[in-house]
Every structure is written in C-alpha cells, then in structure tokens.
C-alpha cells in the first residue's frame, strides 16, 4: 500500500516538469501574440515615424498624452458619441431579459426552438454582412424606399443610413437586431436554473402569470442581469470598431465616430502612430480601472466577484 503510494508520488514528480515543458510552446505563442504588442505601448512616448528605428526617434515624453488635451474638441465629440451609444445600449439591456421571460412563457416547445434558431442567426454574421443587409434595405434603391415609393408615401428616397440626426438610434437598433436573440439565451439558461418548486408553489397559491413572473422569474434572473450590466459598464469605451467602420459615411461622420474608430483614423489614416497608441493606452487603462471598480462594487453588493 505504502509502496504504491510512493510510486505514485515519484510518478507525479517526474511528470511535473514534463507537463510544464509541454505547455511552454503555447505560453510562447500567447506571449508573442498577446504580450509583445503591449511593448508597442512604448511608441506613445516617442515621435515614432514608420520606417525609422526606435533608437533613432526622439523621446517625446508625455507629449502625446498632452495632445489629447489639445485635441479635446475632437476627442470630446468622439467621447460623446461613444458614451451616448453605450448608454443607449445599456438602456436596452432589459429587453434581452424580457425577450427570454416572455419566450419562456410560450407553451409550444417547437415554436420556442424556431424562435431561438431564427433570432440568433444575425449574431453569427459579420458586420460586413450586416452592412450589406442594411444597405440593401435602406439605400436609395433598397427595399424600404421601393416599398414606400410603391405606396406613394414618399416622393424622394429617404436615406436612413445617411441621416446624422438619428444615427445613434439607428446604430443601437442595428445592435439590437444583431444581438437580441443571442443575448436572450443566457437569460433562458438562467430561467431554466430557477427551482421549479417555486413555480408549483405559486400556482397552488393561485398566483397569476404576471405575479409569478414578477415575484419568481425576475428575482431569479436578477443576478445574471446584474453581472452582465456591470460588464457592459466596464466596456463602455469599447463599442467596437467593425460596426462603426462599415456604417461610417461622410454624411454621418460627426455622430458615428466612436473612440475605436477615432484611434483607427488617427493611426491608420493620418499615420500618427504615437498619438493613436497613446489613445489606445488611455482606453485600456480606463477600461481596466472600470472593470475593477465594477468588480469591487459587485463584491460589496453581492459578496461575489464577477471576474
């Protein structure tokens, strides 16, 4: 018995390093593709010009961070767009939960399944395809204009994707179209996890549908809702690049430009690598700070961290 145990211990020890060395190639891959780019942050402190090696470029100190202040008019506009669209997105989060709650009330299993399959589809297409779809529906010879024209409701084509006044709402609507069905799945899982006995007890007590939803389902999914909301808050500055890149056009430029797009424009179109990097650093630092703040908040409120 003891001998067998010893053999096992020796076996384990000899395998400690073996396992480690097998993992090393993967660690190297992660290092190359996820950590080395971080060293690129150093470009924010130099007057980096593409093609000139780093040791030949003059040190710039915090100049590029100060530049953010000098560019505050642009940056303010960009941050306003970013925050407004993020907040609109946050305001829509209860819809995900509502979508799941009411779907859960449906009796037909096959209907539920069909709803899930069809409404999650838009989540799996690229933003280029989303743009293709919306372009074909909203451009001047697209579906919407054809139909409106056909019924004689309009004389000249409307241009929804080029309307600066409504672009925030249009983009939020597009996000909801793409993500509503998929986002609801996590709530469906949460609802499935609620103790069925609670529902049975409510039924015995004669509680109606809406009472049951309000008193059992809603509290049951509240923790999920809360965690997702906090994660969204920590992601407020990153509404993503793809969507705003594909839907960007000169007509809506002032209202659609978000931080990720601005970073791209400054870096790639204006070739100002240093300033763009400085912007990226600030964004990451703020996002991580937000994440930890929100995490602490979650710990204090729920006694459980979210990351």
């Amino acid at each position: 018995m003891i001998q067998a145990e010893r053999r096992q211990v020796r076996f384990r020890l000899s395998n400690r390093m073996k396992l480690f060395w097998m993992a090393v190639p993967f660690v190297i891959i992660v290092f190359i593709f996820n950590y080395i780019p971080l060293f690129g942050w150093i470009y924010a402190f130099f007057d980096y010009k593409p093609g000139v090696p780093l040791w030949k470029t003059p040190f710039a100190g915090l100049d590029y961070f100060k530049l953010m202040y000098d560019e505050r008019k642009d940056l303010f506009n960009v941050l306003r767009n970013t925050m407004i669209m993020s907040v609109l997105g946050l305001l829509c989060t209860p819809l995900f939960a509502a979508f799941a709650i009411f779907l859960n009330e449906m009796r037909s299993k096959s209907f539920k399944k069909i709803v899930q399959i069809t409404t999650t589809l838009p989540n799996f297409i690229s933003w280029v395809l989303v743009y293709a779809v919306f372009f074909m529906f909203f451009s001047s010879d697209g579906f919407i204009n054809k139909v409106l024209f056909h019924f004689g409701w309009i004389d000249s084509p409307t241009n929804v994707l080029g309307n600066n006044d409504i672009v925030w709402y249009v983009q939020t609507g597009i996000v909801m179209w793409k993500g509503l069905g998929w986002g609801a799945i996590i709530y469906l899982a949460a609802i499935a996890g609620i103790d069925q006995e609670q529902y049975d007890a409510a039924k015995v007590d004669g509680a109606g549908r809406f009472r049951t939803i309000w008193n059992i389902t809603v509290p049951g999914i509240l923790p999920t809702f809360f965690v997702l909301l906090l994660l969204d808050v920590s992601n407020m500055l990153s509404n993503g690049f793809d969507q705003y890149f594909v839907f960007y056009n000169p007509l809506v430029a002032t209202h659609i430009e978000v931080l990720d797009y601005y970073t791209y424009r400054v870096g790639m179109l204006n070739s100002d690598f240093s300033y763009s990097t400085a912007l990226g650093i600030s964004k990451t630092v703020i996002s991580i700070t937000l994440l930890f703040t929100v995490n602490n908040l979650a710990k204090r409120i729920r006694g459980e961290s979210i990351i």
Partner: peptide, 12 residues
C-alpha cells in the same frame, strides 16, 4: 483583459 490597441498590434 489585455488589449494593446490597433497600432501596437499592427506594428507587431
């Protein structure tokens, strides 16, 4: 949680 940003990624 680490995101270096577009330009550092591009240069790397």
């Amino acid at each position: 949680y680490l995101n270096a940003g577009l330009i550092p990624w591009y240069i790397t």
